[in-house]
């Protein structure tokens, strides 16, 4: 089957495609998150080898949200870059829709991280490299959103914020190396090293499945927001005027 990708670069076609996909992403989001958390709460030991007690269950949400916060930044940059190269309006809309969900994930990661810190290290916050770089990621997201809403002309605001997203990409490898520090003695990091290989299989499965659920959630909300942006930007076109949701209930 040959799919003409450029067909979906037209906002009208993308709008109807997204509308069809959203319910499936919602179902997948609920199913995967439920399975992930079920494994996480019922199929895992109450304490793990390195002395961590039940509170380690915070990681199912914390890790999923943190991964999403970083990956969504990559997704946002990807669409911004496609927008700059091909000058397709839909890519800019997707980038802008991704930024809000990314910010939300960063906030969930920071709050759950603070609660984790309180139980694990005895402090809500510390200027540890991982925590600090993550806070910077939040500011980069906020900067992107602020810049986009500060410029009235959509074409210019799309381009300017795309460039900011590209520059902000520099923070992502810094976060990665802050938690996967090659030599812990040199990093003085409070945050646990990311240790996917040494982890209990069921805990790892729970983490990965929950993360998959969060991915599906992100797709669903990003597409919903993209549809909103399309409606807003295309409100004066004929195809929007003839949409069933615009005609239905359009009483005099």
């Amino acid at each position: 089957m040959k799919i003409n990708w450029f067909k979906y670069a037209a906002p009208m076609n993308f709008y109807s495609l997204a509308g069809k996909m959203i319910p499936f992403f919602w179902i997948a989001a609920v199913v995967f998150t439920a399975i992930g958390l079920y494994i996480g709460f019922f199929k895992t030991p109450d304490a793990i080898d390195n002395g961590m007690k039940q509170y380690y269950r915070i990681i199912f949400v914390h890790v999923a949200a943190s991964w999403m916060a970083m990956w969504l930044y990559g997704v946002m940059v990807f669409w911004a870059l496609i927008g700059v190269i091909f000058n397709t309006r839909i890519s800019y809309m997707l980038a802008s829709a991704t930024s809000i969900t990314g910010t939300l994930m960063t906030i969930i990661a920071l709050i759950s991280g603070a609660i984790w810190g309180k139980t694990s290290w005895g402090t809500w916050w510390d200027w540890d490299p991982k925590l600090t770089t993550f806070l910077i990621l939040l500011f980069v997201y906020i900067g992107y959103i602020a810049l986009q809403s500060a410029i009235e002309d959509t074409r210019r605001s799309d381009k300017a914020s795309a460039l900011l997203a590209l520059v902000g990409l520099a923070i992502v490898p810094v976060i990665y190396y802050a938690v996967n520090c090659p030599d812990p003695n040199q990093c003085a990091s409070l945050h646990q090293e990311s240790s996917l290989k040494r982890i209990e299989p069921n805990i790892l499965t729970a983490m990965l499945v929950t993360t998959l659920g969060f991915w599906m959630y992100s797709f669903a909300t990003i597409l919903m927001r993209t549809k909103n942006i399309i409606l807003q930007r295309e409100r004066k076109t004929n195809w929007v005027a003839n949409l069933p949701e615009v005609i239905a209930g359009g009483k005099k």
């Binding site: 007690k53 039940q54 509170y55 915070i58 949400v61 709050i111």
Partner: peptide, 14 residues
């Protein structure tokens, strides 16, 4: 195991 407040508040926030 005594960590209810922490765990459930994280789930609640999310």
């Amino acid at each position: 195991g005594g960590y209810a407040a922490y765990i459930w508040s994280v789930m609640g926030v999310a």
